[in-house]
Computed example of a mutant assay.
Amino acid sequence: MPLHGFGTNPGDLDAFLFAPAHLPQNAPLVVVLHGCTQTASAYDQGSGWSALADRFGFAVLFPQQRRANNPNLCFNWFSPADTRAGAGETESIRQMACTVIERHALDPARVFVTGLSAGGAMTSAMLATCPDLFAGGAIIAGLPFGVAKSVPEAFDRMRGHGYDSAGLSALVRDAAPSPVRWPSVSIWQGTADTTVAPANAAMLVEQWRAIHGVDLPDQSQSGDRHRYRGWHDSTGRLVLEEYLIPGLGHGTPITSAGPEAFGVPAPYMLEAGISSTYRIAASWEIVPAVAPARPESAASDATPAAAPARHGEAHGFDPGRSINAALRAAGLLRP
């Protein structure tokens, strides 16, 4: 349902809320940020966040960009005016979250944020500018905070160029007063992504590894479907993790089979044999660590008929080509 009256809304964004019919008090809140050319509802349907929330009892907030702010519906992660503490789009999203927490008696210690692509980059901005608000964040095919201040710089960083790894952590530390505890960060990246280069995942790891003061990963797994690394701090808390998905292009990894099958393949929602939606929620401890078997009716409703799509293609869709076409139409990219 639409969310109204959530504050001054300096970033001029829309907002939608999903809350299960029997939402318990002190339930968690997940803020979900769509990618370029997407809407909140399309991203929700593909990723399955509302379906997951309905089953396990938490609320989901969906900020949505307006075309007047960005012709491609991208969150303006590269605009200093929209990524400062207390200003622009980051402040609008903070106001939405605080309003929902108060109205629905949610747990302020269990607020999380995730997003894809431009939404992933804006997730970085939310974690940097509002670190006291979020217990954790998940960045999917996104970019580090503060690395671009214009459209040309944004394209350069998306290609993995122009980085100064030595200054990455300072960009976060200087964005807002240091919190009592920094949020945990989960990073997801396809190795065949030609829209946001995999080098950005490596830079995200460097940015947040330095913030959390961790060095080498103390947990790792490698298989056909993903390569995983995890970092725990001195208290044993998982503060940083990275999932690399071999052969996956630009999009959110989902699976259309098994107990983790929340969401459906669609543009930017890519069959990967692993559900980023479920794994992220599990790392935040708001769903069971191992997905329980789903009721027969729910499982059949959630399993799409479409054949699995690999290497960044879903239903014949090329995400990189679509983004470039949209940017050219808006005059932001030369032919």
Rank of each mutant, 00 (worst) to 15 (best):
M1G: 08
M1E: 13
L3G: 03
L3W: 15
G5Y: 09
F6C: 09
F6V: 08
G7E: 12
T8W: 00
N9K: 02
P10G: 05
D14G: 10
F16D: 11
F18R: 06
A21Q: 12
A21Y: 07
L23C: 08
L23M: 06
P24Y: 14
P24W: 07
Q25W: 06
P28M: 01
V30Q: 00
V31I: 13
V31K: 02
L33K: 00
H34E: 13
C36I: 11
T37C: 01
S41Q: 02
A42S: 09
A42G: 13
Y43F: 13
G46C: 09
S47E: 12
D54R: 04
G57P: 06
A59S: 11
V60R: 01
F62C: 02
R67V: 11
N70K: 04
N70V: 05
L73Y: 10
L73R: 13
F75D: 04
F78G: 09
A81G: 06
R84E: 14
R84G: 10
A87F: 11
S92W: 08
S92H: 06
I93V: 14
R94S: 10
M96W: 15
C98M: 11
R110N: 02
V111I: 14
V113Y: 01
T114L: 15
G115S: 02
S117T: 04
S117W: 06
S117F: 06
G120K: 01
M122V: 02
M122P: 02
M122G: 03
A125L: 07
M126H: 05
G136P: 12
A138V: 11
G142N: 00
G142M: 02
G142P: 01
L143M: 15
G146K: 08
P152D: 11
F155E: 08
M158W: 03
R159E: 13
H161E: 13
G162I: 05
Y163P: 01
D164M: 05
S165T: 14
A166N: 11
S169D: 11
V172S: 01
R173E: 14
R173P: 02
D174G: 00
A176L: 00
A176F: 03
P177W: 10
W182M: 14
P183V: 15
P183E: 12
S186Q: 13
I187Y: 05
D193M: 09
V196Q: 04
V205K: 12
V205C: 07
I211Y: 07
I211R: 05
G213C: 14
D215I: 04
Q219Y: 10
Q219G: 11
Q221N: 08
Q221C: 02
H232I: 05
T235F: 04
R237I: 03
R237N: 08
R237P: 04
V239P: 08
E241D: 15
E242K: 15
G247I: 06
H250V: 08
G251L: 00
P253R: 05
P259Y: 08
G263S: 09
G263H: 06
V264T: 12
M269D: 10
L270E: 09
A272N: 12
A272Q: 13
I274Y: 00
S276Y: 04
S283C: 07
W284M: 07
A291I: 06
P292S: 11
A293P: 09
A293V: 05
A293C: 01
R294Y: 04
R294S: 14
S300Y: 00
D301M: 00
A305N: 07
G331Y: 12
L333D: 11
R334A: 14
